[in-house]
Design a protein around this nucleic acid. Structure first.
Ligand SMILES: [Mn+2]
Ligand SMILES: [Mn+2]
Ligand SMILES: [Zn+2]
Ligand SMILES: [Zn+2]
Lengths: 140, 140
DNA sequence: ATTTCAATCTGTAATGAGTTCAATTACATA
DNA sequence: TATGTAATTGAACTCATTACAGATTGAAAT
């Protein structure tokens, strides 16, 4: 069990190296968290989740790592929540639904091609987001 | 000229009354600004623009009015800019493009129906936004 | 006209996400 | 082992937004 966990972290280390990212323990742990959670976490959520494993962890480090990961294309930055930035471990283009009651963000899989445009009305597109807000299934 | 301006402000007063909104001078001026600008302004932009006409104006009042207008459906709240909320004087559903260089937000008119859904995957939709980010025509 | 009362406005203080920065630590290489 | 660069840390800071309490407004009621 411990050995298996160690193997998984070593896999992440190799992934980071292959992307020209120095695999610090902090970066490995953030990557591991993102890989295993689909909750579109905020910096604070990640901090609370992994600071137990890294007693000296600084929240600034989480900010640094996520900004770096975003630049490297490992995570996507979601501005759907006006209170704090949320992050997504990108797989494929998809939309999001954020519940105004519980704050949860759900993945939505639409048959829409708006996420795949290179240009719109002459502007060069680098990111595309389809965001819904309302009341989620569970809160209805 | 002055008379015509006064007539326009009186028209706004009637519009607000018809929506069960007490037509204070501050509210009329914010409405008038939104009606005449398509720049998706922030609170600060509106404050700077109209505080000359209202010497005692408080920025808190702009926050109050915009939150109130949003609740009444007069303006739409855009979270595309992670630094500050931007507001839109709604006409019809449309998408937005925000330039990462100059910060300007452009209206985009797509032939997409994603903005018109009532439910997605069981969740009740109240707002829908299609947001693009990149480099605008002018900054390219 | 004066009183009354709720709604609105104002300004200051508090909150909290995110950034800056200088000092410390980790780690690869010589 | 010594050195140098990159990463981490934590405190101070910025700045958008909210909370709050007192002042002002304006429309009834008397
Ligand atoms: Mn997602
Ligand atoms: Mn618009
Ligand atoms: Zn919910
Ligand atoms: Zn631009």
């Amino acid at each position: 069990m411990v050995n298996k966990n160690k193997t998984l972290l070593n896999e992440i280390k190799e992934i980071l190296k292959s992307k020209d990212i120095k695999p610090s323990y902090q970066r490995i742990m953030v990557y591991n968290y993102m890989k295993n959670h689909r909750n579109h976490p905020s910096v604070d959520t990640i901090f609370k989740a992994i600071s137990g494993s890294i007693p000296t962890l600084s929240k600034t480090t989480i900010y640094n790592i996520l900004n770096f990961f975003a630049k490297k294309g490992i995570v996507d930055t979601l501005t759907i929540d006006k209170n704090e930035v949320r992050y997504d471990f990108i797989k494929t283009p998809h939309a999001h639904f954020m519940c105004k009651i519980c704050g949860e963000i759900f993945d939505i899989h639409l048959k829409s091609d708006v996420c795949l445009k290179d240009f719109v009305e002459g502007h060069k597109v680098e990111d595309a987001h389809v965001d819904f807000k309302g009341v989620c299934k569970g809160c209805l």
